[in-house]
Write a protein that binds this DNA or RNA. Structure first.
Length: 431
RNA sequence: GGAGAGGUGACGGAGUGGUCUAACGUGCAUGAUUGGAAAUCAUGUGUACUCGCAAGGGUACCGAGGGUUCGAAUCCCUCCCUCUCCGCCA
């Protein structure tokens, strides 16, 4: 039901009046979309809609005339007969309108968000632009090794028993393993709080309407775990419940910008993943993450994206981890995003970068689908907000980098000073 | 999970088949009155789509979806949510 309602992602007027902009966006994102078909459906739909509404107007005015007639009179009976024909006509036209509208909407949903002018051209991840790099990746310690090869790793991060109890990719975190996870979560939340993000503890299962509003349904249904009886979805990120907080609401302009953060476990089926990407803590089906989210005035959203990214970066700086900032090229900018930065942390043992945060401006794309608006002071009319979100941060990969970059000769891991108040000790031990 | 009562506009609340373009009240906005304010009076007060250069017009929306009917806020069915009581349970 909800899936068939009027929720679109691009402004129909924009598509109609400036199809060249949409065409350019499709090209920049290197997508294959039949825009002309969508435009044709649009024209057809509006013509049909005009007919239906004209007939209904007739029906309505005739109905008002009937109200003045005597119930049992011959005039009344005649009118009823006359109206039957009109009624049948309306039903017929409406029946035709339905499928046309459905096709138009389905087509509209294939149109991606327009990438921002500052998004670089490019098709593949190799064409992403390294926006900035922090810390050194040169000093390769002879001790450095992938975290799963650190002696004692399995005691703190028990994948085997997790597989027995649940399945692959659901590790037990034991002892210092559990403690460091908890420390990181709390560190992230405290930092976000100080940066002005109000903490929220949301539901971690959501209904279909919420999953649809942020675009996870219908496209990514296979990526989410579902409950059997209740048709609910385990959240793949706190973004899902958090963005839906204001769904179908009109906010006062004065409350913008709203900054919120939330810790949740995140559940991802990660269908189709394989190889060393999925070793150890690199990719698991359940992981912990703190998400940062902003609802902002459209005129401010690009500044707000930069400050959100800065908040996320600050965490890596405080953890003393080398990282880089990628500005995603057109081809690697997601369907729904207008601009996206990835933060990647250096994993010295694997000698590779791991994505720990993705900071995106969705402009009005999500807000349109979720109907999150504010009442403009200027016009008095409701306008769509812009939404921005990013991780701050994902725990397992941050943890992997900590383990690989800070492994000492004694087999322990030195922890950055900022974690001391949380962890209680300066080193993490596998013994 | 069981039984009962409900879901109407920013809010309260009427409306049980046709003039509902939803009474009335509160709130809000503008204007009048006032030295200023309160009170009072007047006017206005949603969302979405669509047609139109515009002025303006049309259609839909009374929790959601479907049905009956010439016509549905009103009748029927299904679902969701809230409240009360009972049961069960961290």
């Amino acid at each position: 039901m909800w899936l068939h309602t009027r929720r679109l992602m691009l402004d129909p007027k924009l598509v109609r009046e400036s199809p060249e902009l949409v065409r350019a966006a499709i090209a920049k994102k290197h997508l294959e979309v039949d825009l002309d078909a969508v435009l044709a459906f649009d024209t057809q739909w509006r013509a049909q809609l005009g007919e239906v509404e004209g007939l209904r107007a007739k029906q309505k005015s005739a109905n008002n005339e009937m109200a003045a007639l005597k119930k049992g009179s011959p005039e009344f009976a005649a009118k009823v007969q006359e109206m039957k024909g009109l009624s049948a006509q309306v039903k017929e036209k409406e029946a035709q309108l339905g499928p046309i509208e459905a096709q138009w909407r389905a087509g509209m949903l294939t149109l991606p968000n327009l990438p921002h002018a500052s998004v670089p051209e490019g098709r593949t991840p190799a064409q992403n632009v390294v926006h900035a790099t922090f810390g050194s990746t040169d000093a390769v310690s002879p001790l450095a090794r992938p975290h799963w090869d650190i002696p004692g790793f399995d005691r703190l991060f028990d994948f085997a028993r997790g597989a027995k109890v649940t399945g692959a990719g659901f590790p037990f975190y034991v002892g210092d393993g559990a403690r460091i996870v908890r420390s990181l979560i709390q560190f992230f939340l405290d930092e976000a709080g100080q940066a002005g993000y109000q903490e929220v503890n949301p539901p971690i299962v959501v209904n279909a309407a919420s999953a649809t509003a942020v675009g996870q349904l219908p496209d990514k249904e296979g990526q989410m775990y579902q409950t059997v009886e209740d048709q609910l979805y385990l959240v793949p990120t706190a973004e899902t419940p958090l963005t839906n907080f204001f769904r179908d609401e009109i906010l006062e302009e004065a409350v913008l910008p709203v900054y919120r953060c939330a810790y949740t476990p995140c559940f991802r089926r990660e269908a189709g993943s394989y190889g060393k990407d999925v070793r150890g803590l690199n990719r698991v089906h359940q992981f912990d993450k703190v998400e940062l989210l902003k609802w902002v005035h459209p005129s401010k959203s690009y500044d707000e994206l930069e400050t959100l990214r800065a908040h996320a970066e600050r965490l890596l700086q405080k953890l003393e981890l080398p990282y880089r900032v990628l500005l995603m090229c057109g081809g690697d900018t997601g369907f729904a995003q207008a601009k996206k930065y990835d933060l990647e942390v250096w994993a010295a043992g694997q000698k590779r970068w791991l994505e720990v945060s993705s900071c995106s401006n969705f402009e009005a794309f999500q807000a349109r689908r979720a109907q999150i608006r504010f009442r403009s002071k200027e016009t008095g009319r409701p306008e769509l907000v812009h939404t921005i979100n990013g991780s701050g941060l994902a725990v397992p990969r941050t943890l992997a980098a900590l383990l690989e970059n800070n492994l000492q000769a004694d087999g322990r891991v030195r922890l950055p000073a900022v974690l001391a108040p949380y962890f209680g000790r300066e080193t993490l031990s596998f013994g």
